[in-house]
Amino acid sequence: MLFAPLSPPQMHIPDGFLSLGIALGLWIVTIIVIAISLQRVSKDLGPRQVPMMGVVAAAIFAGQMLNFPVAGGTSGHLLGAALATILLGPYAAVLVMTCVLGVQALLFQDGGLLALGANIFNMGIVGVVVTHFVYRTVRNLGGGKPWTIFVGGFLSAWLSVVCGALITALELALSGTTPANIAIPAMGGIHVLIGLGEGLITAGALAFLYVTRPDLLKIGEEKPAGSGIWLAGLVIAVAIAIASPLASSFPDGLEWVAEQQGFLTNAQNAPYHIIPDYVFPGIQNEALATIVAGIVGTLIVGGVAFGIAYARRNRSATTNYETIAK
């Protein structure tokens, strides 16, 4: 029961839903961002970084258990990227979200392992960049007055979820897993609502901290971020702005576009042309191959099961002998 609220609906992509190109491409982007963050965070936080980020990551993980009923059995809950960014600054927040999502994937299969790069990108990096961008902008526009903390926190948290969902839908569409003209409006629409929960909880958390520990709200502000993060924010915003309507306006979305251009088909088939055109020796067609595979598979599993049973029998025999000997 506790696991259910750990996974905000439709955001942690499992393995098998992304094409290898998309999954690996996003892994590369994610690794680069993590590497930069690792370098920057040492300068920002100093020797306190390991305990601080470790415990904040644990707090975010535990905080994702918090939920509140909205209506009709659905509930609002926390992803935490926005809160982490506002409290720790963007670089530490990227690392914290990486750890949270990594542990969720590795231990609870909440999101796949090959898809982890994409999930860190969608929920960690995009969330952090959007939050940093929006929160700083609202804070600056409002002249740093206290209300800008809550408005900025709410807006940035809400947008971080919406943008993350849109990018997730885009990746699924590009992978040919889901039609873009359905996925993007659907994911976007649902998360415009789900994001409200994130926004309200984030603003509520900031209100609590503003009263009890206002000093904590300043950690993320100490170091102004470099121009890199602004550029990244701009790139992501432009990508969403261009890709979303483009993707949903065509009959079968991006996939259709890609197929029209012939590039997806080529990209997918390229490696297979390396193997020359001949039929698998002894196996004439696919149906036969499937049957053979079924038989081989059954033999493998049966063999292992039999082997275990045999080994167990021996082991328990020895154990009994020892017990008797005593």
């Binding site: 707090a59 905080g63 929960g197 309200l200 909880i201 958390a205």
Partner: peptide
Amino acid sequence: ARTTGGMAGNLMMRGFERG
């Protein structure tokens, strides 16, 4: 949502203090 947010804030504060 505000109550839940307060709990999240409380949790973060405890996290920082424990850190």
